[in-house]
Amino acid sequence: MKIAFYGSSLVSAYWNGAATYYRGLLRALAAKGYDITFYEPDVYDRQKNRDIDPPEWCKVVVYDGTIDALKAVTAEAAAADVVVKASGVGFEDDFLLEDLLRHASADALKIFWDVDAPATLAEVRAAPDHPLRAALQQLDMVLTYGGGDPVVDAYRFIGARDCIPIYNALDPDTHHPVPADRRFGADLGFLGNRLPDREARVEHFFLEPAGRLPDQTFLLGGSGWQDKPMSGNVKYTGHVSTRDHNAFNVTPKAVLNISRASMAENGFSPATRVFEAAGAGGCLITDYWEGIELFLKPDEEVLVARDGQDVADILADLSDERADMIGQRALQRVLSEHTYAHRAQTVDTLFRHHAAKLEAAE
């Protein structure tokens, strides 16, 4: 089957948190025999900040940020068996979806793949005439990379025929144990860009515990934090390239996951970093969100904090030996249940079920 996938970027993770998800899932689908073309716009300096070359398992088409260029690539959807429009492409998203539905063949499986369902649903709720509402009538399904029943129910309520979560996962070829790197030495590390929907939670779960534990060292990575007030025991390292994520996750005694507020409220939304840290064998402390036990077992494979005081208490009592044990258990769990090969099997079943229905109807 041919897949035409229209997303933000496959070759650049620069201000593009979905890159890891796209890479892991599409690579696993390619291994199942799918012929995939990924279309991405040249916007937000992503092409100037590529962190991988176009892969052999997927053709990458980069188009200029113009309407004419967009029209040229949407026309190519006509030759695909599966047409995917992801959320947050970053250039004329509404027009892109409309034009893809116009060009896609009648028999093609047409999918809206939402990589930030809480944000999308909030936008749609605020606009009764939002273009996605009408488009849902022409789409076969909505796939999301997070969200349990609240997201599924919300999508069905606004008109989706079906909504199925395809959760983040681990790509063991890219995220795996590596030797420690002294650049990232700390008691607790946190990696994440400064975003409005996350900043208050970073203050609460990371910066406040740092202030309570002056004898421990804290490492902050990600873009945008350079002017943020923080205690002297916090080392800010700036943007961390994806090639260094494994070392960042495995070197500190523990690493912290902080969900964006909207993700935490919806639950069932494990961030990419959850699986990256587990895949490296790092000891993960995460803020609480409903459904975490479906992915990692609290107190044995992950440590869960409901507030900043919990983070401080966990860290104060965490021995190196226990941190290592939790990291190793998390690694074994994600390898056995939560790789992109597992997710691709679910997606493959969905695609083939649709193809079988078409054959039966002929």
Rank of each mutant, 00 (worst) to 15 (best):
S241F: 11
N233K: 03
A261T: 15
Q226L: 09
V240R: 05
R260P: 00
R322H: 09
T237V: 15
G222N: 02
A264Y: 01
S319R: 02
G224V: 05
G282Y: 04
A305Y: 10
T272E: 07
T339C: 11
L284A: 06
C283V: 04
N257Q: 09
W225D: 02
E337C: 11
F295I: 02
G238Y: 04
D307S: 05
L296G: 12
E293C: 01
F295S: 04
G221S: 10
A278H: 12
A254F: 01
N257R: 00
D299F: 09
K297L: 12
I258C: 09
E293D: 09
L219H: 02
D244H: 15
A264R: 10
T237Q: 11
T237E: 10
Q328Y: 05
N257V: 01
D227P: 00
V302G: 03
F275G: 03
S336D: 05
S336Q: 06
Q328G: 11
G221W: 06
N246D: 08
I326W: 02
A264K: 08
I258Y: 03
G281Y: 10
F295Q: 00
N249W: 06
E265M: 12
R243K: 10
Q332P: 00
A254E: 02
Y340V: 01
D317C: 07
Y288F: 15
D227G: 04
V311G: 11
A277S: 03
W289D: 14
C283P: 12
A254Y: 06
A277Q: 02
E290H: 10
G327S: 01
R306P: 07
N246I: 07
T251Y: 05
